[in-house]
Each structure stands twice: as structure tokens, then as C-alpha cells.
């Protein structure tokens, strides 16, 4: 554990909201968010694929935006909200994207998957905030373009995100219609 490095600079305290929970952790000042998560907190769901911002494997959401944990200094997430794969549903009750990925075979080795899911949830969440949302496969591809996957050829990943995006929008429309009727 690098926090016990000899001659290392004194650790600094980082307070953040991690998956909705107030979290405090002391880390060396040169650590990245990826190191904070994996080494500082033992949150190993976020993976390291290249450690230099090329592969997207370590994607997390910072204040809702998909960002690379390996290119973000840990101290930069002070007082900010960070969401990781650990906050995205549980084995008992998976997020709709997790369920669709599993059913459609969108995860093979599963290593890119946590980061891919963080980009995919950001895409779907963003869609629900638009005035006249349209699900377009090209838009999904663009939203996931920063996440490399070496197993799937992306086909089943795009299928899964497309399916969930449609079902989320349909649910939103139904909800809006029923609210309108109630009024």
C-alpha cells in the first residue's frame, strides 16, 4: 500500500460523496481518483486498463459526467459526487442495463464492462432530460466511443443500451401520459 511509502509526502484528506455516501479518505497528494478508489478504499469494481486515459476502462461519473478516474487527481474530487459501478444496482436487483447486458451477452470478459456501464448510464440518464428524446444507434455509439471493448465487437453492447434506452423512454412517456390524465 503506497500510503505507507517511506519518504512519501504527507497524505491529504479527501471528502467526497461516493455512490451517495459521505466518504473521507486520506491519500498521497499525487494519487489519482483511480488509486483512491482501488487502493485507498478497496473499491476494485473500477478497473485499470491503461492508466493513461486511452481505454476508458476506469470511467466513473463525477457530478454525473462520465470521466476517467486515471486522469483525475484524487484531490480534484473533493466535495464532489462520484458514482462507480458499486453504486449501480446489486446482484439481487440489478440496474436495467446490467440485466440487459447479462441477458444479451454484452459482457464477455467483463473487464471493460464497469466503465462501459458508467458511460451507458450517463447516456440513458441524459436522454431522459431531453425535450424530445430520440434513441439513435449512432448516438449510442458516440456516447460509448471512449470505452474500448476487445471481446464483443460492440454489437451486443449497442443492442443492450438501445433496448434499455427505449424502455426507459417508454416508461417516462407512460408516466407523463398517466400524469396528464390525472390532471
Amino acid at each position: 500500500m503506497s500510503s505507507s511509502d517511506l519518504n512519501a509526502p504527507a497524505p491529504v484528506l479527501v471528502n467526497l460523496q461516493l455512490n451517495g455516501e459521505a466518504t473521507s479518505v486520506a491519500v498521497p497528494p499525487h494519487w489519482t481518483l483511480l488509486e483512491l478508489l482501488r487502493y485507498g478504499l478497496g473499491q476494485t469494481g473500477t478497473k485499470q486498463g491503461c492508466d493513461k486515459g486511452d481505454c476508458g476502462t476506469c470511467t466513473v461519473r463525477i457530478d454525473g459526467e462520465p470521466q476517467l478516474a486515471c486522469l483525475t487527481l484524487a484531490v480534484d474530487v473533493r466535495d464532489r459526487s462520484v458514482e462507480t459501478i458499486e453504486g449501480l444496482g446489486t446482484g439481487g436487483e440489478p440496474h436495467p442495463l446490467q440485466e440487459a447486458f447479462a441477458r444479451l451477452g454484452a459482457a464477455q470478459c467483463g473487464f471493460c464492462t464497469p466503465g462501459m456501464l458508467m458511460s451507458a448510464t450517463a447516456y440513458v440518464d441524459d436522454l431522459t432530460l431531453q425535450d424530445n428524446p430520440q434513441v439513435k444507434r449512432d448516438d449510442i455509439a458516440a456516447a460509448l466511443a471512449g470505452n474500448l471493448c476487445r471481446c464483443t465487437g460492440y454489437t451486443k453492447i449497442l443492442d443492450a443500451v438501445e433496448e434499455v434506452a427505449h424502455s426507459v423512454l417508454n416508461r417516462q412517456r407512460e408516466l407523463a401520459e398517466s400524469t396528464a390524465e390525472d390532471e
Binding site: I85, E86, G91, Q98, F101, A107, T113
Partner: peptide, 12 residues
């Protein structure tokens, strides 16, 4: 799908 894939999908 793969019965064990939810483990990877949950980051576990």
C-alpha cells in the same frame, strides 16, 4: 447469457 456475468456486471 452467461449465468456468472452479473458478477462482473456488478463490479464484483
Amino acid at each position: 447469457g452467461k449465468p456468472d456475468s452479473l458478477d462482473a456486471l456488478a463490479g464484483l
